[in-house]
Design a binder for these strands. Structure first.
Lengths: 280, 280
DNA sequence: GCTATTGTTCGGCTATACAGAACAATGTTC
DNA sequence: GAACATTGTTCTGTATAGCCGAACAATAGC
């Protein structure tokens, strides 16, 4: 799992991942560990091992967060299972609401899902990553695991491409250099050049594809949303299992998604794709 | 704001609100302060004052949480505005997903909203409070502020009543004694006796009302959801501005909500209201 | 230009958060 | 049913990490 690293190693002061406040960092580690084992719940010892502290330390951390509702615990016999608390639900909801886009976009997403029978998502750029802040699940038994708030690499995601495509090239390259372009599948674009070429296409036609570039068998079609200033503040997409549609149909779907994105832009006072200036 | 309290006071060990880990508690304070000022964003000094620490301490706390995405910051000129980070969105989403009820209930909520044109919500009991974990907003311009994850007092909420009504009386009284029954409006039931009488009615007919008991002009109609064990694991409700319907219509609406609640119970393998034993 | 207000860094004192071991409570095994 | 194993919880000493205050930097206002 996680060896104890060299504990008493003088003080090379390295430890770049050592955050100013150790206990706070560990508390956040606990939350993320609980998130990673979501659904299962974890015991004190398990958590202690996961984040590399003693049981007693983990216990104190948990006690603090349970008292505040950030972690909830269930006693089951002698054991005690910890899971993420509902206080996080409230804060997460507020964090989403702070980005006002969600308010106006959600009804449109619903219509997009109604029209296409596909799961649709709304995402924004956060520190270079694409992060979904809204979602409408497709009807029917097929439930795509479209989790909210997870940072996704932009180079292999439809919303990521739409969010990036109108940024200045140097900025795009800086993001790609910082986050890397790992090969997620055989279709992933892994060189900045090929991605830039793709992004130029995306900017030109106003919609983007993720052609099994992140997960095999999963295809997405996305388009950007603009605010008053003309900046791409968000992007929407629909996700589908491997489409057996023709390329023509895929482009038709792209035009549909773009039309819905334009409606959101319109509500935000932003321009439609057709009103955008050509690329600099 | 917050005097230093008597620091060296022997050890009456009071300070019930002093959590084991001070810095972690303060970190959570920061998050909640940011949540309270949601939408506006806060500066370092403002946060420091809100939670009663020095600016430098607040700064360190924020830096730690920014590094992990729990807080996001926007530089605007020389100033720096902090707001809730998107990492919270992910964890909040996971916390909701952990309660599997959401998965099956959301489509039904959607149908309930479609059928009634009212905002519908799904709530569970958390430490005695009613906490909404799901919501479908009504169409149209009227947007009820139905925030997720906030702890709501059960005695003046429709979902709260439905969640409580089948608990043993001593347990209900214990919850009420612990949380109190503050008078939110002139219609709030403020004595355990009147509430218990109301809860017996709720249990008998299978749906509950909040008749402007929490907010004047706001009416809710709720019903409980049961799992395999027959326990009320959740409740749903619809919310409306002051209905001008007759009592008969209100009861009709109650029957509708109860029918949808029963459909969720059915999906969970639980009994419908009609299959429940009468109150002990 | 100077002042007022913000964010950020630094250093030292102290309280605090840590690990480890002891204790308790449960469940498991033979 | 008793010994064991495994879990959660309490306790205590000590090193250190976290806190404050003050100094510094950078804006914004006048």
């Amino acid at each position: 799992m996680k060896q104890a690293v060299d504990k008493a190693e003088g003080k090379p002061a390295a430890a770049e991942d050592r955050y100013p406040l150790r206990s706070v960092g560990r508390a956040l580690d606990v939350l993320q560990a609980l998130g990673a084992n979501s659904g299962k719940g974890m015991g004190v010892g398990e958590i202690a091992e996961a984040i590399g502290v003693s049981r007693s330390t983990a216990f104190t951390l948990l006690q603090t967060m349970v008292a505040r509702g950030f972690v909830s615990d269930v006693r089951i016999g002698g054991a005690r299972l910890y899971r993420l608390g509902l206080a996080l639900v409230h804060l997460g909801d507020l964090a989403v609401a702070e980005m006002g886009i969600t308010q106006v976009a959600t009804p449109i997403l619903q219509q997009l899902t109604d029209a296409t029978q596909l799961t649709s998502r709304l995402a924004v750029l956060d520190d270079g990553y694409a992060v979904a802040i809204g979602r409408v699940d497709a009807p029917g038994p097929f439930r795509m695991t479209a989790s909210l708030g997870r940072r996704e690499l932009p180079h292999c995601s439809s919303v990521g491409k739409s969010l990036l495509c109108r940024l200045p090239e140097p900025q795009i390259l800086a993001i790609l250099a910082r986050l890397g372009m790992p090969k997620r599948t055989e279709h992933t674009l892994t060189s900045p050049e090929t991605l830039l070429a793709d992004l130029r296409e995306v900017a030109r036609r106003g919609y983007s594809f993720d052609n099994e570039e992140d997960n095999l068998g999963v295809v997405c079609v996305g388009s950007a949303v603009f605010d008053r200033s003309g900046a791409a503040v968000a992007a929407i997409s629909v996700t589908s299992m491997r489409l057996e549609r023709s390329d023509t149909d895929l482009h038709h779907l792209g035009a549909v998604v773009r039309a819905f994105a334009d409606r959101i832009s319109h509500l935000l006072g932003g321009p439609a794709h057709s009103a955008l200036p050509p690329l600099a």
